[in-house]
Design a protein around this nucleic acid. Structure first.
Lengths: 225, 225
DNA sequence: TTCATACTTCGATGATAGCCGAAGCATTCA
DNA sequence: TGAATGCTTCGGCTATCATCGAAGTATGAA
């Protein structure tokens, strides 16, 4: 026995409630300071610092120093994909944090998944792109077809800039609430950023929820009917 | 905060080395007794029993009584998919169990992923089916096209029987060694079972590795060139 | 320089949980 | 019926680790 990767180290990192809360908060996509993360986990700064260093050596998060602040964020997309995957399983087995709160429907409708759009809206968008032949799927990978490139460029995304990066442009990510995939990768990130920059939607304070304005929702539905 | 599913419970279950070893062993797909699982985890029967009851109430495994034996197995496909996903991440971050052993190449070539074929062979098979237009992908879901149904039936799979079941016929599963998807679902299970029943391949003892005979490999390559 | 903020490190404490020995059920076999 | 096997439950031990107070380091502001 003793073959293959060791999942217990990753599991142990996620297994502590304080660390799990921090990771869930970081799934919101914004980099947070140690003090903020201590707040969401409900622990003191010292304890949080200890947790954060463990998460960092485990490769789950990365920090960026900026002045006297240290901003922590998920290490990369892969962490977000894995966490969303586990969330899907947990939701499936009834491992919910508490009773479903009032924010639950909003989360299921539209939320941030690390850096891209998830929930009903996110799934709908990918469904439409695939259905129209603009995106092809190949396992966890995805790719834009020529017609898709035209469509995305028409929306106002600078595709050349995305392709210049090393990370994949298109990826799929399993949605925990819809149990279907939505669009991740640098394109997924750019699309969400565009929706927010154009005022179609904005992030709720201290939550992963995304709220579309009436006008924004109308335009979104027009783009992905 | 405190929104969405709680990943810490799942993480804690996977986070203990003994339990992680048991789950990895069960990824081999065969149901094992408490005594056997205690062996792979390197602990006594009493301790193993305690771990197993935790895994069961957590929804990760299920037991089947048979005479004076109790056979434990992963609860369902979803558990296998999640574990393989975490393994992929762990391998990616260098969380390996030990140094890569002699069995490592064999595992990467072909192995069992709960109940279906994984590794290079598994990925190749799905690639071919998708490339030939026999399987279409849609996020984590997949579906057979009419031409695919003909092809699968020609191989000798009773598709009607698979469709009669409630579980999905086609699913994709992210492969930890190849970092691409292979075919899961009842069709993935049926195909592996067929390869073994026809003597093309057989399971290695006490390992997830699958060894193809020379003749079996030739036939497999002819089917999925 | 002095003070304040942001965070880390050290040290001590306490609770959790893994672990095993022993005893208790349940099933099968002789 | 008695003995053996397979597994669970109980009780106590121990080690780990999360936690926080206190002290230390680093950056920025006054």
């Amino acid at each position: 026995m003793k073959e293959g990767p060791d999942i217990s180290q990753i599991g142990a990192l996620i297994g502590d409630p304080a660390r799990a809360n921090m990771l869930t908060a970081l799934m919101g996509g914004q980099a947070l300071t140690a003090t903020e993360l201590a707040g969401v986990a409900g622990i003191t700064l010292q304890t949080a610092s200890s947790h954060l260093s463990k998460l960092e050596t485990g490769g789950l998060i990365a920090q960026r120093k900026q002045g006297r602040h240290r901003y922590f964020a998920l290490a990369d997309d892969a962490v977000g994909l894995m966490l969303e995957n586990i969330m899907g399983f947990a939701a499936n087995r009834g491992h919910m944090r508490t009773r479903p709160g009032p924010k639950d429907p909003a989360l299921r409708k539209a939320r941030v998944c690390y850096n891209h759009l998830a929930g009903d809206f996110g799934v709908r968008m990918l469904d439409r792109l695939v259905g129209d032949g603009d995106v092809t799927l190949d396992g966890g990978d995805a790719a834009l077809t020529p017609s898709g490139e035209t469509r995305i460029a028409a929306i106002g995304i600078d595709l050349a800039a995305l392709k210049a990066q090393r990370r994949p442009v298109c990826r799929t990510c399993l949605d925990w609430s819809e149990r279907r995939s939505h669009l991740a990768g640098s394109l997924g990130e750019a699309l969400l950023a565009l929706f927010i920059a154009d005022g179609w939607a904005k992030r709720e304070k201290d939550s992963r929820a995304i709220r579309f304005t009436a006008e924004g929702e109308r335009r979104f539905m027009a783009l992905f009917p």
